[in-house]
Design a protein around this nucleic acid. Sequence first.
DNA 1: CCGAATCCAGCTTGATACTG
DNA 2: CAGTATCAAGCTGGATTCGG
Lengths: 142, 142
Amino acid sequence: MQEGTFSSHGHCRGTTARGDVFAADCPTRRLLDRIADKWSTLILLTLHDQPMRFNGLKRRIDGVSQKMLSQTLRSLERDGLVSRSVVATVPVSVTYAITPLGASLVASLRAMIDWAETRMPEVAAAQAAYDTISGRSVPEIA
Amino acid sequence: MQEGTFSSHGHCRGTTARGDVFAADCPTRRLLDRIADKWSTLILLTLHDQPMRFNGLKRRIDGVSQKMLSQTLRSLERDGLVSRSVVATVPVSVTYAITPLGASLVASLRAMIDWAETRMPEVAAAQAAYDTISGRSVPEIA
DNA sequence: CCGAATCCAGCTTGATACTG
DNA sequence: CAGTATCAAGCTGGATTCGG
């Protein structure tokens, strides 16, 4: 990240070719907040395999509420990461698919998930050690 | 993720070599929720460059509150991604550093941030298009 | 000066119920 | 099927305060 410029505050816009997530007021920060999100991640990963309908996604992504699914899908659609197509059948059927832009993000997301799924044992061990050494005083965050 | 098994629900534990983030009750899901987090991401990225003290992090990560910083750091420490070392100087000085485990995650995180910082224009364009077509009915999420 | 803990207002989340 | 509406609960962050 072009080190050297450790701009603690602010600037990000303007002539700069790219944003700076470390600046609170940079649009990039908001974007990061949206893609670095559990539901967004799982939705994009799922749609990368195949287009899917609302309830398909809901079934696939165990534990997501309708509200969060609907809300997150709209956000992803607005950001151009997911497309939404409506077919006026009897009960209207809506299909969601990933866009090329969305697909270009999936690799990183997948890497993150792969990390989580494979490194879990080490994390669990660290947690156990932490909870032991800290001697009970630390409440389970999980 | 051993594809093919589209286990909508549950299983993840047991004999399986790795977790399944799509299962709501899998510890991996909680882990994903913690690493797919704005503050965790920015903290890990920052510490990957160099160890840093609390207020150094606070200054670097524009907009983070003391509370969230302290809370997130404790969570990362518990998960073994960050180490905390105290030096009993006059005003005690506490330094945070990334662990090898944490460092092994940074590449994916950095990729995600790079994506956000470089693809922002396309996302902004998509938002503009969406907001126009949807005809005012959609309130700015940002 | 560094860092943690507390109180409080406000936003986000999720369960439930309801509509086209 | 595909959402929207509503409400209660929890989390977030700012300000303040306390301790070393």
